[in-house]
Design a protein around this nucleic acid. Structure first.
Length: 785
RNA sequence: GGCCGAGUGGCGGAAUUGGUAUACGCGUUCGACUUAAAAUCGAAUGGGGAAACUCGUACGGGUUCAAGUCCCGUCUCGGCUACCA
């Protein structure tokens, strides 16, 4: 008798797939397509972990499921390779990040192949490959051309360990998302993408997405639209002194700015109760508002609060602030009200200034009580009376500069006056220069600055007046792009991954994109918001024929260690998927186990014993097919009911991503076949249904059965039985189960008669019947006595 | 503090959206095969009770013929968010 030997079977099929490339995707006009992908991995030195396996297997189950239904499926694969781990490793060991990356990729590729995924390997991409990042730079230039990539000097999050600025989305609880160190604020000139330009559309389009509600809510909150008004408060000048002529014009402030303060409020109707104004410590122009008497105190307060870390601000919610010595006029009451500075007002939101209405606002009230400022109850006024309607967003523009070596160089050069110029598209890619030392210094510039020759570049400049072009020697930008920029367009690159003339081919993009199903477990706001932003931008430029990049998003849970804690090297509780395979369980068991482990969206704890249970199940499948001693001389109809029930259940469960119950129903089917015996038709159905989960074993079975893998269909006629079990309740309590003819369910009075005469039931009915309820769809009768 | 989820056997988890609570798997127990063990196969398995029965889906109420599912309140645990005016 042949025994189930997964390692042997899997090697056989993997070799076959490697040679025959059955998963190569090609455009087939007129055949409906599915473009399915996971969030591509960062290939770490540690290799695949069980979380990757869950991620990739979900994609694979869906890929095979649709492929078996003969849809034209594209399932590509790629690597997100720029970033700190490779760079830090390079700094430590002196190995070039390029080299480390290639080693890790080849390891990842080998491991992914060992899991038997239905990947079109000709579509492999790598974000740090010049063939790829040439087009990341091209994307940047498109945004630059339209004014959506711009430079701005402002206070930014700075990680002192990683020596780089970070986007808002990369600061978690005041800590760097990579190294975990507390971040600081630093005033720097940096590059931004103007994502706020699309804030409304990004927000309004969320509702229509087939995405988990959780993610949709997180994005909505992140964008954080609030509708209100901007209201101008004139600054009060004593005795006409301190008029606008006193303001130093060299400061670059408009003179209008100095005479008024514009606040943002969502409650312009409460303006009569505004008894003071509050400015953020970083409020630009604060210098010109503050009175000479108060100047020292205000500047000290400003310096202190800039030093204060985000954590300190969070821990200490006690209101602090100082009086600027200046006053403004409330436009509604014409009263003179004091202007304060306090760090509970944030510079980056609204205008960085608020009107405080302590009667209506908790925070203002707290502040007023502490500093003994007036709290006035007032009538509400018309919302539009004193302000102009204005909408603001919690979301800020996306900071994309990184002072790091291992990233995509920003294709910009500076002339001798420091003005930025784009590197012409025909000079792309701007290659990453080789350096000896990858370490950033504390100059605020990346290690790219150490490549002296590389820094010099000749850029054609068009003279505004004459229209003529001349060449100019310039210095290259040394910042690199945030890695999220690289992953903001890779799904489109998959459609024509080796295109030499464009980021994505026109024909390919209109056939394959948008992505039908996208699977991941992270990046709920950052990546998934950025890719939507780029999609809308490139749609506006005519490069994309759609405005949302991802139709359906599957967001799965993490896999934890058996003790329920996060797996981590330091705790020594990491399960290596390759160990599970090589222990003899094989890839099919690992894959099927991870689908069976629990509902896809929930975290799950690894259970080594359950892995054994899944192995036993696959072993039983194998034996049904290859063990001659199992009864197989049945009539085809014998198992038809459960067979069709199983086909229906598995099909519907996969559509709903209920992979755990799909596997459970296959287990039930197999248990039944062990009891009842098996017909060829059962084996064929089983093998086909099993293939998305355990493709090697299923292929082996299908080969021996000599059939293709086309997804089976169920026939509803087998799902209606002749005899059904009628549930009988008395006062809602289960009292009997009676077998009745299915036809009798059409005849309510006959059913009730049958029930009343049942001996188990009748003894409860002696007190007389008040009411009977018959529920046909549940095969249930309830008698009220 | 705010918003959103979730609490079901010894464990992971099922339950057609109000209709048989605990599918499937793990674990445990018993049996078969074996000199023996492993593997495999079969049976049992929420608590109480000899049984008829009875109690059971975090807790307390409610609606209903019928509640794990709906409503009100409480507790616990997760996620996001954190002075966003």
């Amino acid at each position: 008798m042949k025994r189930y030997n997964p390692l042997e079977i899997e090697e056989k099929w993997q070799q076959k797939w490697e040679k025959e490339k059955p998963y190569k995707a090609e455009i087939k006009l007129g055949v409906s397509k599915k473009f399915i992908a996971e969030m591509f991995p960062y290939p770490s030195g540690a290799g695949l972990h069980v979380g990757h396996v869950r991620n990739f297997t979900i994609v694979d189950v869906l890929t095979r499921f649709y492929e078996q239904q003969r849809l034209n499926v594209m399932r590509p694969f790629g690597y997100d390779t720029f970033g700190l781990p490779a760079e830090n490793y390079a700094i430590k060991t002196g190995t070039a990040p390029q080299e480390v990356t290639m080693t890790n990729i080849s390891n990842f590729r080998k491991q992914a192949k060992r899991l038997g995924y239905a990947i079109d390997w000709d579509r492999e991409i790598n974000t740090s490959d010049p063939e790829y990042y040439k087009w990341t730079q091209w994307c940047f230039l498109q945004l630059y051309k339209k004014g959506l990539a711009y430079q701005k000097e402002s206070y930014q999050w700075w990680c002192p360990v990683d020596q780089t600025v970070l986007a808002n989305e990369q600061v978690e609880n005041g800590h760097c998302w990579r190294c975990g160190h507390e971040v600081e604020k630093k005033k720097m000139k940096q590059w931004f993408f103007k994502i706020t330009e699309y804030a409304d559309e990004l927000l309004d389009d969320i509702d229509a997405l087939d995405w988990p509600e959780k993610i949709k809510t997180m994005q909505k909150n992140w964008i954080g639209r609030s509708v209100g008004a901007e209201v101008d408060f004139a600054i009060w000048h004593e005795g006409g002194k301190g008029s606008s002529s006193d303001v130093p014009q060299a400061a670059g402030l408009s003179s209008a700015f100095s005479r008024k303060i514009t606040v943002f409020t969502t409650r312009p109707d409460t303006i009569q109760g505004a008894t003071f104004l509050v400015l953020a410590p970083e409020y630009s122009g604060l210098d010109y508002i503050v009175s000479d008497d108060a100047r020292d105190a205000v500047m000290k307060y400003k310096a202190d609060s800039l030093k204060k870390s985000e954590i300190e601000r969070q821990e200490n919610k006690e209101k602090t602030g100082v009086f600027t010595g200046a006053f403004a006029i409330n436009p509604a009451t014409k009263e003179k009200i004091p202007i304060w500075v306090a760090d509970y007002v944030l510079a980056g939101y609204g205008t960085g200034a608020i009107m405080a209405v302590p009667f209506y606002d908790e925070r203002d009230k707290e502040f007023a009580e502490k500093f003994d400022l007036p709290i006035v109850e007032t009538e509400l006024v018309d919302r539009d009376l004193f302000g102009t309607p204005k909408t603001t967003y919690r979301m800020r523009d996306w900071l994309i500069s990184r002072q790091r070596y291992w990233g995509c160089p920003i294709p910009i050069a500076y002339d001798k006056d420091g003005n930025p110029h784009p590197i012409p598209e025909d000079q792309l890619p701007v290659l990453i220069p080789e350096v000896d030392d990858y370490k950033p210094d504390n100059s605020g510039r990346s290690a790219l600055a150490k490549a002296k020759d590389w820094l010099k570049v000749t850029v054609p400049v068009k003279d505004e007046k004459t229209g003529e072009t001349h060449l100019e020697e310039m210095t290259r930008e040394t910042d690199t792009l945030d890695g999220y920029a690289c992953s903001s367009w890779y799904l489109w690159r998959y459609t024509s991954p080796h295109d030499k003339d464009s980021a994505w081919g026109k024909e390919a993009i209109s056939y394959w994109a948008p992505t039908d199903i996208y699977v991941g477990a992270d990046h709920a706001v950052a990546h998934l918001l950025y890719i939507r932003f780029w999609c809308k931008f490139f749609a506006d430029q005519g490069y994309l024929p759609f405005r949302e990049p991802i139709k359906k998003l599957i967001y799965h849970g993490y896999i934890n260690a058996p003790d329920g804690k996060k797996m981590s090297k330091s705790k020594g509780n990491v399960i290596d998927p390759l160990d599970v395979i090589n222990d003899g369980y094989g890839a099919d068991t690992l894959r099927t186990y991870e689908m069976f482990i629990g509902p896809v969206e929930l975290d799950a704890a690894w259970d080594p014993r359950s892995v054994g249970g899944v192995y036993r199940f696959l072993n039983r499948c194998f034996n049904l097919c290859f063990d001659e001693s199992i009864k197989n001389d049945l009539d085809e109809e014998h198992n038809a009911v459960i067979r069709h029930k199983t086909i229906k259940k598995v099909t519907e469960d996969i559509y709903k991503c209920n992979f755990n119950t799909a596997v459970a129903s296959l287990m039930e089917y197999v248990n039944e076949l062990y009891k009842e015996g098996v017909h060829q038709t059962d084996l064929i159905a089983l093998a086909k249904l099993l293939k998305p989960f355990a493709p090697h074993l299923a292929s082996e079975m299908l080969e021996s059965l000599d059939v293709d893998d086309e997804w089976p269909k169920w026939d509803d006629k087998y799902l209606v039985a002749d005899k059904v079990e009628l549930i009988v309740q008395v006062n809602g309590k289960l009292r009997a189960r009676i077998e009745v003819d299915a036809n009798d369910l059409e005849n309510e009075s006959k059913i009730i008669e049958l029930v009343k005469n049942d001996e188990k039931v009748s003894k409860y009915l002696e007190g007389g019947i008040k009411k009977t309820i018959f529920v046909k769809k549940a095969n249930l009768v309830n008698i009220v006595v």
